[in-house]
Structures are given as structure tokens and as C-alpha cells.
């Protein structure tokens, strides 16, 4: 039973306040959607939660301990996917996935073809990433979701550059993850049709929540 919470978080970019006094607590199975206009600090909030951005006011807690105290224990339980999909252009799809897999530290062997089939890119193991379209690159970046065993997911705009069918796959994946007791925080500016699953939502207007 793990718990992720933020207390009175504040973020200032070029000394205008993006958000102030933000509190959030999430238990197992929690799903939070952060939406707001561009530049309203959605990605900054996500990066603060993931521990990428160091903050001075407010704190981020994992199991009631500040993440700076047990950084690597926290980081082995999270998965962060940013705007950029962090794959190497000059490597083939499979090589990229082997690196992602070894970074998760799991010993189990993984069959890359099945994962590629699940994401809808079957048979593209040996294709170089620079030959792929933006949607395919995004999907290759999202194959992390299949290979990770961490509980806490931070997804930054997982659905952009994805077609209808790709969106469906990722939505089911998120729902299964949360149903199995995982926690997911994701940002999107489109309205998300996750039906049948309780969804908390944070709307970031320019300077208050």
C-alpha cells in the first residue's frame, strides 16, 4: 500500500507564479489527469513530482518520506515519459528496447516482437528509428509502459502524435495498470474518454488551481 503526496507545491518561472499551494494525495489505483493551456506549468508540475526539478517551497513525499531522502528507492518505483520520447535515432527499434529494458534492471528475458505487436508495430524490430514516422517513434517510446514494473507512472502528453487506434491501446494499458494497484499521473490538453474509471483531475489556470 504505497502513497504519493505533494504538500503546498509552488512553481515560479521567470518570476511569475505558475501555481501555488498545490496539494495532492494518491493511494494505490489512483489516476490523475492534469490539464491546462500550454505554458500553464503542466510539464513543470509533472517534472517536480518525478523529482527532475528541485523545488525550494513545498515537498513531494513517497510513502510519507521526502523523495530527496530516499531518491534511488523512489526512482526505482517510477517511470517518467516526457514530451521527447528518449529513443536514439541511429539505433534500431530492438536495440532501443534492449537499452530501455536493461535500464529497468529486471532480469527476466523479454520477447520484443510480442511487445512491438502489442503496440501495433509488429515486425519492425530491425527498422532504424530515423526511418520511422513521428507516431511510430512515440509508440516506440511508449513501449516502456510494457517493460516497466514500477508502480508510479508520470506520462507527459502520452497521446499526442498518436492515431485513434494508438490512443486506445495506451488508454487500456493505463486502466489495467491502475486497476492492478498502480498510480498514474498524466497531462493532456484533450479531453480523455476514460470511462468507467474514477478520475481525479487538476486544472491549471495561469496562477491558481
Amino acid at each position: 500500500m504505497s502513497k504519493f503526496s505533494i504538500n503546498n507545491l509552488e512553481c515560479i518561472r521567470q518570476n511569475n507564479i505558475l501555481f501555488k499551494g498545490l496539494n495532492l494525495t494518491m493511494e494505490d489505483g489512483g489516476l490523475v489527469q492534469i490539464n491546462g493551456a500550454n505554458g500553464s506549468g503542466k510539464s513543470s508540475l509533472l517534472q517536480i513530482c518525478a523529482g527532475l526539478i528541485q523545488i525550494t517551497t513545498g515537498e513531494v513525499l513517497w510513502n510519507n518520506i521526502n523523495i530527496n531522502q530516499h531518491r534511488y528507492e523512489f526512482q526505482s518505483n517510477i517511470l517518467y515519459i516526457g514530451h521527447t520520447n528518449a529513443i536514439k535515432a541511429t539505433l534500431t527499434a530492438e536495440e532501443n528496447m534492449t537499452i530501455i529494458h536493461s535500464l529497468t534492471g529486471s532480469k527476466s528475458k523479454i520477447n520484443y516482437s510480442t511487445i512491438l505487436k502489442k503496440i501495433g508495430m509488429s515486425g519492425m524490430n530491425k527498422i532504424f528509428t530515423y526511418n520511422m514516422s513521428a507516431g511510430q517513434k512515440r509508440r516506440l517510446g511508449l513501449t516502456r509502459l510494457f517493460m516497466t514494473k514500477s508502480k508510479l507512472w508520470f506520462l507527459d502528453e502520452p497521446f499526442n502524435a498518436l492515431d485513434k487506434e494508438g490512443k486506445k491501446i495506451i488508454e487500456n494499458l493505463i486502466i489495467n495498470h491502475c486497476a492492478k494497484g498502480g498510480i498514474t499521473i498524466f497531462t493532456t490538453h484533450q479531453k480523455m474518454e476514460i470511462d468507467g474509471y474514477p478520475l481525479q483531475s487538476i486544472h491549471l489556470r495561469n496562477n491558481n488551481v
Binding site: 517510477i78 517518467y80 521527447t84 536514439k88
Partner: peptide, 11 residues
């Protein structure tokens, strides 16, 4: 290409 974030947040 953003993989520095993955390295920073890896276990």
C-alpha cells in the same frame, strides 16, 4: 532526444 531524463530518473 531527452534520454538524459531517463538516465537521471533511472534506478
Amino acid at each position: 532526444d531527452g534520454s538524459i531524463e531517463q538516465l537521471t530518473l533511472s534506478r
